[in-house]
């Protein structure tokens, strides 16, 4: 268990210094290789926890609303890796979104908001 070193997840590269970090939930709330949803100041954030990536363990934070169905279900999709990118498959119509930049792989018009997220000890933190 070497999570003392916090790992930065999201590749929203334009924001040079994400933060300030806010606590969202605890590590215990996460499900390995799958998703849960947290309430974040009026927004619904889907959190995906991957314990073993090339960069060690990672948490991704992405908008929970599926633009195609209008339902808040992204957190209940299947996580996968397609062409060297971590993605989430939306559970109703199966379209894929990049967990790194929120882009829809099938439709360049569709985007989901992504947040930077990290594990800090037993806490899950997010940067607005």
């Amino acid at each position: 268990m070497s999570q003392a070193n916090a790992v930065r997840m999201s590749s929203a590269q334009l924001a040079p210094q994400p933060g300030p970090w806010q606590v969202l939930c605890s590590r215990d709330d996460l499900v390995a290789n799958s998703g849960v949803v947290a309430w974040f100041d009026g927004a619904q954030v889907a959190l995906f926890y991957l314990p073993e990536t090339e960069q060690g363990e990672q948490v991704f934070a992405i908008e929970n609303r599926d633009p195609k169905s209008g339902a808040n279900v992204i957190g209940r999709g299947i996580v996968g890796r397609i062409k060297d990118e971590y993605v989430i498959a939306a559970p109703l119509y199966k379209q894929h979104f990049s967990l790194e930049d929120g882009r829809c792989l099938e439709d360049s018009e569709q985007y989901l908001r992504v947040w930077s997220a990290r594990l800090n000890g037993d806490l899950v933190e997010i940067a607005a």
């Binding site: 709330d29 799958s34 949803v37 309430w39 959190l47």
Partner: peptide, 10 residues
């Protein structure tokens, strides 16, 4: 059953 929550923190 932990997963059966709409929001884990609310």
């Amino acid at each position: 059953l932990k997963r059966f929550r709409t929001f884990v923190n609310d």
